[in-house]
Each structure stands twice: as C-alpha cells, then as structure tokens.
C-alpha cells in the first residue's frame, strides 16, 4: 500500500522543505520508491535541496497543471545526482522522484492571476503514485491554509505538522490541527523544530502533546550545522552520523510505521 505524506506548517520558515527533503531521503534509503512534490507554487524551493538547478528544469508541476503534459513527465529522478558529505556514499535503493514547481516569473504570476483546477492536482497526486509505482509520495506545502494545502491535508495518510517553540506558531498550529480533524486526516504527527538545545525536550514534548492531543514524532534542535548547510543539500546525506540525523531517522520511522 502506498502512502501520501503531507508536510505542513501554519507559518513560514519552520523547516517544512528541509524536513520533507530529509524524510524523503531517509525513506528512500530504507528501500522505498519515493516521490516528492513541491506544491508551494507561489514560492517553490525544495528542488534546491536536491541539487536540481533551474537550467536543468525542463518541465515542472506548472506544465502539468496547465495541461501541457502528463504528471509523470515532470518527475526528475534525482537519486543519482544527490550531493553527499565527503567520503560518504548515499545508497538510494528505492529512488527519489522530484516534481518541482516552476521558478519562472511568468509561471508563478499565472498561477496567482488565474488560479488552477484543484481537481487536476488531486488527480496528479494519485496518478504519480500509480504511474511511478511509488511507495511514498511526500508533499511539501505553502505555509498557511489555502486550497492546495487543504486538499493535500484531506488526501494524506499522514500529516506532519511542523512548529517552532513560538507563541505565534502555537496558535497557528491549533487552527491547523482543528482544520485537519475536519478534513478527517488519517494520521497526524507533530514535529517541533528549531528548539534551543538548552531547552528541556521532554517537558516541551509533554506540553505540546497535552495542548494538541496529538503525538509529537520528534523535537529537532536548532542546529548550527543545518544553518551552515543553508539548504545546499539534504542534511542527513551530508551528515549521516550527526545527532540531528538520528532524530530525523526516528521521525521517518514513525512516518513509515502503520498508524
């Protein structure tokens, strides 16, 4: 059975794209065929982490949404070109298929101006899974609640909600949790990111779980190494033995586990 995983946060900059990229790589390393799609059409970015540069981006999700091609034609097999840390070899036994959103100003403007057919996006998710024979499809989203985010929440088997230890994030997450319940989301996991290493992780976990009545899959520290990497690569591949990678692996395992 294939699974669709959406990664979302109410506010921007929480670490959605980085977490999505890391979960993608870790799930692929576990031997799965994994698709990862950038539904942040207004401000795309996850392709950067996978080293896909604009000049080599021939087709994008936008082309599919405008009916110019089939969804699987917009998928890039990025496994072979992934950047790994010095002396490391990334073994992607499964394979990673990235569906980027366009960075062309005209394409972004067109989406903002004209909108697009959300049904087509839903069909695209399902067709990707079946045509590329994916075990997992991860969806990176735009922050906040908009039509494509609501759709990706509604159709996902697992929703990973990211928040920082910040009052604005706490309030926004409450809204998102309520919306996700209304959309009958099958399974929800919280990830608290950018937590100061000096915090008491256990009591933070308890506090968050008590507030949202939702399990916390992991607490990720604010990491200097992550800041330094600055989205130039996928952290767990650059630093396979890093404590943060261990925490990310633990989250990946929970995502893969049966709810």
């Amino acid at each position: 059975m294939s699974k669709i995983i959406s990664v979302h946060s109410f506010r921007g900059g929480t670490g959605k794209s980085n977490t999505t990229a890391n979960l993608t790589a870790l799930i692929a390393q576990a031997g799965n065929r994994v698709g990862v799609i950038d539904t942040d059409i207004q401000s795309p970015g996850i392709h950067v982490l996978f080293g896909l540069d604009e000049d080599h981006m021939d087709k994008s999700l936008n082309d599919y949404l405008w009916g110019r091609c089939a969804i699987e034609e917009t998928a890039y097999d990025v496994g072979p070109t992934l950047k790994v840390g010095e002396g490391n070899v990334a073994i992607m036994s499964g394979g990673i298929y990235l569906i980027p959103s366009s960075l062309k100003v005209g394409e972004i403007a067109r989406v903002l101006r004209e909108g697009y057919d959300v049904s087509i996006l839903n069909d695209g998710f399902q067709d990707l899974v079946s045509r590329l024979d994916l075990d997992y499809l991860l969806i990176d989203t735009h922050p906040g609640l908009n039509e494509e985010t609501l759709l990706s929440i509604a159709i996902s088997d697992v929703l990973v909600l990211i928040l920082r230890p910040d009052q604005q994030d706490f309030q926004g997450t409450a809204v998102t949790v309520e919306v996700a319940r209304k959309l009958d989301v099958q399974r929800m996991l919280l990830v608290v990111n950018k937590v100061l290493p000096s915090f008491d992780f256990d009591s933070l976990r308890k506090q968050v779980e008590d507030t949202y009545h939702t399990p916390v899959a992991g607490i990720l520290p604010l990491s200097e190494d992550m800041v330094r990497l600055a989205s130039r690569g996928v952290f767990c591949l650059e630093y396979p033995n890093h404590p943060l990678t261990k925490r990310l692996k633990d989250i990946a395992e929970q995502v893969m586990a049966e709810g």
């Binding site: 959300v118 039509e147 609501l150 759709l151 509604a154 919306v179 209304k182 959309l183 009958d184």
Partner: peptide, 18 residues
C-alpha cells in the same frame, strides 16, 4: 472549494472527504 468542504455539516463533510 476545499474551504466550502470545511463549512459542511458533519455527516456530509465526512462523505465529501471520503
């Protein structure tokens, strides 16, 4: 729209989500 779905009364919303 998905926003309309959120505003649906319970049993119907479940049906539409499904």
């Amino acid at each position: 729209s998905m926003a309309d779905v959120l505003a649906l009364p319970d049993p119907l919303r479940n049906l539409v989500n499904w």
